[in-house]
Simulated scan of single mutants.
Amino acid sequence: MASYLITGASRGIGLELVKQLLELPASQVSKVFAVARNVEIDAIKELVQKHSDRVIPISASVNNTASLEKAVESVKGKLDGQGLDVLVNNAGINGLTTGGIKGMEVDQLSQILDVNVIGVQRVTAAFVPLLEQGTQKKVFNISSALGSFALASYIADMPTDAYIISKTALNMLTLRWAQQYADAGFTIAAISPGWLRTDMGSKDADLSVEQGVSEVKRLILESGKEKNGKFLNIKAAKTDDMMWEYDGKDIAW
Score class of each variant (00 low, 15 high):
Leu221His: 08
Gly8Leu: 11
Leu151Val: 14
Glu69His: 14
Gln133Lys: 14
Val216Gly: 14
Leu196Trp: 01
Thr187Leu: 07
Val213Gly: 01
Arg54Ser: 09
Ser74Cys: 00
Gly103Ala: 06
Trp244Ala: 14
Asp161Met: 13
Ala252Gln: 14
Ser10Ile: 08
Ile142Phe: 08
Leu196Gln: 02
Ile56Gly: 04
Ile6Leu: 06
Asp157Gln: 10
Glu73His: 10
Ser110Leu: 09
Gly83Ser: 08
Gln180Asn: 13
Glu73Ile: 07
Met243Leu: 15
Val75Lys: 02
Phe140Arg: 08
Ala43Met: 11
Ala126Leu: 10
Lys70Asn: 11
Glu16Lys: 14
Asp240Ser: 13
Ala237Thr: 12
Gly8Cys: 06
Val39Trp: 02
Gly83Pro: 02
Thr124Gly: 08
Ile142Asp: 02
Gly229Ile: 11
Leu131Gly: 07
Ile118Val: 12
Arg218Ser: 10
Arg11Cys: 12
Thr187Lys: 01
Glu40Asp: 12
Phe33Arg: 08
Ser52Ile: 04
Glu245Val: 15
Lys167Ile: 13
Lys50His: 04
Glu46Ile: 11
Leu79Gly: 13
Pro193His: 09
Val213Tyr: 04
Phe33Pro: 00
Ala237Gly: 03
Gly229Val: 09
Ala66Gln: 14
Gly83His: 06
Gly83Glu: 03
Arg54Pro: 07
Glu245Ser: 14
Val55Ala: 00
Tyr246Trp: 11
Lys225Val: 08
Gly12Leu: 15
Lys235His: 07
Ala125Cys: 13
Val48Asp: 05
Gly201Gln: 04
Ala252Trp: 03
Ile191His: 09
Gly92Thr: 04
Ala169Pro: 10
Trp244His: 08
Leu113Met: 15
Met1Ile: 09
Glu222Asp: 15
Thr135Phe: 05
Ser214Val: 00
His51Leu: 02
Ser202Ile: 07
Gly201Cys: 02
Gly248Tyr: 01
Lys225Thr: 12
Ile44Glu: 02
Gly212Arg: 00
Asp247Gln: 01
Ala184Pro: 00
Leu24His: 04
Val62Tyr: 12
Lys249Asp: 11
Asp240Val: 06
Ser144Gln: 12
Gln82Val: 02
Gly194Pro: 08
Asp53Ser: 06
Gly201Val: 01
Ile155Val: 15
Ile188Glu: 01
Met158Ser: 14
Ala162Trp: 00
Trp195Pro: 10
Phe231Pro: 03
Glu222Lys: 09
Arg218Gln: 07
Ser208Asn: 04
Val120Glu: 08
Trp195Asn: 13
Ile101Gly: 07
Ala91Pro: 13
Ser30Ala: 12
Ala36Asn: 03
